[in-house]
């Protein structure tokens, strides 16, 4: 009891400290006072990269190297899930649950699964024009596979094909970076023409990299879900 009250007091002090420090030092909704790096991104982003979505411009073009590192972290996490749950799986070809999903759900999943994949692809192909991009589209694709898993008790993803897709897509990302290094002298530098902002085929290397990121994120999240679902109770 004493421990709990001490913890509550400490947490209340923490809450007050966070809230009042923020409210004093950084007033909410203040106009931009610092002329930091954001101004460069905002005022020159469209001319530099050709992408009208500035978040995409930062994620893929200005900070593309960070994104490469992030995709690596995601890959390591997926590998870690697979390694931690190694030899806890059940042999392939068996049903996962006792009760099967009903006819309505199975038919619906057969109709809706391609539509969900198409929606995910739409999100990451249009990443430089509209809100969305590789991470969101990849998450939608992983949700589609999760739906397939829930509705069909015998469904298993083909691990070899998934690993191959993931490797090819990851290598595409790295190869685009190395091509930039060879052609212009900087890793991940935009070596394609920018085009006119607002069109689908514009913004240089951004659509290529975002498609690669989308497929990679989708494959890795599906791999995580698959590894966790295949574990026996």
């Amino acid at each position: 009891m004493i421990k709990k009250s001490i913890a509550l007091i400490l947490i209340a002090i923490l809450f007050v400290a966070i809230f009042f420090t923020l409210a004093n030092d950084l007033p909410f909704g203040d106009n931009r006072t610092t002329t930091g790096v954001s101004d460069k991104y905002i005022y020159h982003g469209v001319n530099d990269t050709g992408a009208s979505n500035l978040v995409t411009a930062i994620v893929v073009n200005y900070r593309g190297f960070d994104t490469l590192g992030e995709v690596t972290v995601l890959f390591v996490a997926a590998t870690g899930v697979g390694a931690v749950l190694y030899n806890m799986g059940r042999p392939a070809g068996k049903k996962r649950k006792k009760t099967e999903a009903s006819l309505i759900v199975r038919t619906g999943s057969r109709i809706l699964f391609p539509m969900m994949l198409l929606f995910g692809a739409y999100i990451f192909v249009h990443g430089h024009l509209t809100p969305g991009g590789g991470f969101q589209g990849g998450a939608v694709i992983a949700t589609a596979f999760l739906f397939k898993y829930v509705s069909d008790t015998r469904y298993h993803i083909d691990h070899n094909k998934f690993t191959a897709t993931e490797s090819v897509v990851g290598m595409t990302f790295a190869l685009v970076g190395i091509m930039g290094l060879l052609l212009t002298g900087y890793f991940l530098f935009n070596f394609l023409p920018n085009g006119s902002p607002g069109e689908l085929l514009s913004a240089g290397i951004i659509p290529i990299i975002y498609v690669a990121i989308g497929i990679k994120v989708g494959a890795e999240l599906t791999g995580i879900l698959d590894n966790m679902m295949e574990v026996e109770q």
């Binding site: 969101q136 998450a139 949700t143 999760l146 999240l221 966790m228």
Partner: peptide, 18 residues
């Protein structure tokens, strides 16, 4: 809107499933 989409798809979808 970008972050909202990511949070809705990942935080409320896949995280809950996990």
């Amino acid at each position: 809107p970008d972050v909202a989409m990511a949070e809705a798809a990942i935080g409320a979808g896949i995280s809950t499933a996990v």
